Simulated assay, not measured.
Amino acid sequence: MSLTNQKTTEEIALGIRRRVFFHTMKNKGGYLSQACSAAESLALLYNEFLKLGEPTLPKVPLPFRGVPSADNPDAFTGAGYHGPAAPEYDRFIISPAHYALVIYCALIEVGRMDEHALDHFNKDGSSVEMIGAEHSPGMEVTTGSLAQGLSMAAGVAFARKRRNEPGKVWVYMSDGEFQEGQTWECLAAMAHHGIDNIRVIVDVNRQQCDGAMSSVLDLGDLASRVAAFGATCRSIDGHDLQAMRDAADSAEAGKPLVILANTSPFQGMNFLQKRFPRLHYVRFKSAEERLEMQAALAAELGVSPNEMEGA
């Protein structure tokens, strides 16, 4: 649920890509391909799917105040940017913490965070971390090593179901998390307990830090495997907004819904195809390559020369 009420989902998706692009160019590196693959699904979540209240944290993020504990009343979690955890509102668990920059840009695009929040990105003492933790904007929990977020979300969803709370639990995942056994155990547990108030969106971009997933640990027919574990599984084009909407409305009683959003890690920035599959974190090999990439991506994203000043 957007707080701006002025932008279309398409405009928000483009805005996410542009912001991550500017940040990457300015900082000589960044998680650029995740913006390419995830922009549409995150724009849909924040602008249309999620039922959230007003943020409870300031638009310019607070500095890190320590981890939550009974002895630390000043601690906070990034869930405050999603509003209060009231029964009628949805909860949103972000599992791949390395998508943090893309999440921050999504929060800015929908008016939940100030654009100057990125001035604090990856700075000592800041909560705006490069790899999100529970205190980072938009992050409700620290998902540890990859693939722990789904289990946490399932526990929250099970508790909400037992309390008859109307709010749903949404989860954002990367496809690499299906290389981990904990994900499959969680799917089986959700099916067994009939946890049907959970919605899982998976960014299936088929690349990871070590290269193409097919060369690291191929997942095969992921849709069939997920369905075999008892979930309702929809495999769709993750850049097709209407396909995403239809999939989100197709949940079945008694079963968790898993949407496999098949995406491209260079969607909207085709120049990056030259780097595939080494796209997990984009660094520039030379000043010349940076200039070449900057010019090519700016043209693809419709960025003017004036906008490029400072990047």
Results as ranks from 00 to 15, higher is better:
T8N: 11
T8K: 07
E10R: 15
L14P: 11
G15L: 11
G15W: 15
G15N: 14
G15H: 10
V20K: 11
F22W: 13
H23A: 14
T24K: 02
T24L: 00
T24V: 03
M25A: 08
Q34R: 14
S37Y: 07
A38P: 03
A39F: 02
L42Y: 07
L42I: 06
L44W: 10
L45H: 15
E48P: 11
L52F: 12
P58G: 03
V60W: 09
P61S: 07
G66T: 05
G66H: 10
D71E: 14
N72M: 12
A75Q: 02
T77K: 15
G78H: 04
G78W: 01
G80K: 12
G83S: 10
P84R: 14
P84V: 12
A85Y: 13
E88K: 08
Y89N: 10
D90R: 01
R91T: 05
R91D: 08
I94Q: 03
I94Y: 04
Y99N: 08
A100Q: 06
L101C: 05
V102H: 14
I108A: 03
E109N: 06
V110A: 02
G111S: 07
M113E: 11
M113V: 14
H116M: 13
H116P: 05
H120N: 11
F121D: 01
F121H: 08
D124P: 13
V128Y: 00
E134T: 09
P137M: 08
P137V: 10
E140S: 11
V141P: 06
G144K: 11
L146T: 07
S151G: 15
M152Q: 03
G155E: 05
G155I: 01
V156A: 04
V156H: 02
A157M: 02
F158A: 11
R163N: 11
N164T: 02
K168R: 15
V169D: 13
M173Y: 10
F178Y: 13
F178D: 14
G181C: 09
H192F: 08
D196C: 00
I201L: 12
D203A: 03
N205T: 04
N205A: 07
R206Q: 10
Q208D: 01
Q208H: 01
S214I: 05
L217R: 03
L219G: 00
L222C: 00
L222Y: 00
L222S: 01
S224A: 13
R225E: 05
T232A: 04
C233Q: 05
S235A: 10
I236Y: 00
H239K: 04
L241Q: 10
Q242M: 14
A243C: 09
A243Q: 14
M244I: 09
D246K: 15
D246E: 08
A248R: 13
D249Q: 13
E252A: 06
E252L: 07
P256T: 01
V258N: 05
L260A: 03
S264D: 12
P265D: 08
F266D: 05
M269A: 02
L272I: 02
K274A: 11
P277A: 01
P277I: 05
H280Q: 11
Y281V: 03
Y281E: 05
V282H: 11
A287F: 13
A287V: 14
R290Q: 15
M293D: 04
L297P: 06
V303T: 04
P305W: 09
N306D: 15
N306S: 13
M308K: 10
